[in-house]
């Protein structure tokens, strides 16, 4: 996790001021060039022709339905991965078993799989020419080119986020507290609810925030399974591409700015979560000392 705590170091373990300033300047320049300029560009291009056009692009029905679909996809996929993340972290962090490292690698897999491949696999399974396509057709169940396909693709790409956040955290915390609770007669569920959950809540929140950002922003995988039906199966990132291809650059950047704004909110929320977690840790340490 990030460390923004002030560091006081003795003279021998730090550099000469000019080195410090140069390194800081270079780092800030890099961040400015790589991160701030693109971010600024999105908002600049969106507002280039004034606020009126900006808002017009946002309240257009197709944009609204894209926003709605994006929210639905995130609202389904994040909780699914949340439950999975907690279960996986519980099994992996609190118990020892063979094949654990393989399991962790498999959980990580969606993270390294190209989004294009992620989309392709659902086409191979549920597409009309795929494994279950004909059966689904006969029973009139639509998966790809409909919301379930978009949700599935989103679940896939955000699959590891929460689990990966929780596993190291729960490993570091060990299971002494839970064991103590159990010997004091708490039920398994009570132990989890009263002991484990409060310990991991900040890590959990952190994972949820990251997973949510990725869920709302996914492009490649969703693009393959969406079908691009206007007002029906376009998510916000797909809508950005469509507007861009319509030469509606203001509209494209307006919707992009909405996503960028979401990214900024995500970062702010993340910072806040980290800050709270640090504060609690510090408080706990103070309590321990007293």
């Amino acid at each position: 996790m990030a460390g923004a705590t002030n560091v006081h170091r003795s003279i021998v373990t730090t550099e000469a001021p000019w080195v410090r300033y140069t390194l800081t300047a270079i780092a800030l320049l890099l961040i400015g060039l790589f991160l701030v300029v693109p971010l600024f560009t999105v908002f600049y291009e969106a507002l280039k022709k004034g606020w009126a056009l900006y808002f017009e692009a946002m309240i257009e029905p197709d944009a609204l339905s894209a926003i709605k679909l994006t929210l639905i996809a995130a609202a389904i996929s994040v909780p699914l991965n949340l439950v999975f993340g907690v279960a996986a972290a519980w099994a992996i962090a609190k118990f020892d078993f063979r094949g654990k490292s393989v399991l962790i690698t498999l959980i990580d897999l969606p993270f390294a799989v190209s989004p294009v491949v992620a989309g392709l696999i659902y086409v191979l399974m549920f597409g009309a020419q795929g494994w279950w396509g004909p059966w689904l057709m006969d029973h009139d169940i639509k998966i790809i080119f409909a919301i379930p396909g978009i949700v599935l693709a989103t679940v896939f790409v955000t699959f590891p986020f929460i689990a990966r956040e929780l596993i190291p955290l729960m490993e570091a915390q060990g299971s002494e507290e839970e064991q103590a609770a159990m010997t004091l007669g708490a039920s398994g569920f009570q132990t989890f609810w009263r002991v484990t959950l409060p310990n991991i809540k900040w890590g959990l929140l952190y994972g949820v925030i990251l997973a949510n950002a990725r869920a709302m922003g996914e492009f490649g995988a969703v693009s393959v399974v969406s079908g691009h039906i206007r007002g029906e199966t376009n998510t916000l990132p797909l809508h950005v591409e469509i507007l861009y291809n319509e030469y509606n650059f203001v509209g494209a950047f307006a919707c992009a700015s909405l996503l960028a704004l979401l990214a900024l909110v995500t970062l702010a929320a993340k910072s806040f979560v980290e800050w709270r977690a640090e504060q609690q840790e510090a408080a706990a340490r103070r309590d321990a000392v007293e």
Partner: peptide
């Protein structure tokens, strides 16, 4: 899984 999702779909899409 698919049934659940289909139900969700039906609930959400006007």
């Amino acid at each position: 899984m698919s049934r659940l999702l289909a139900a969700v779909l039906a609930a959400f899409i006007a």
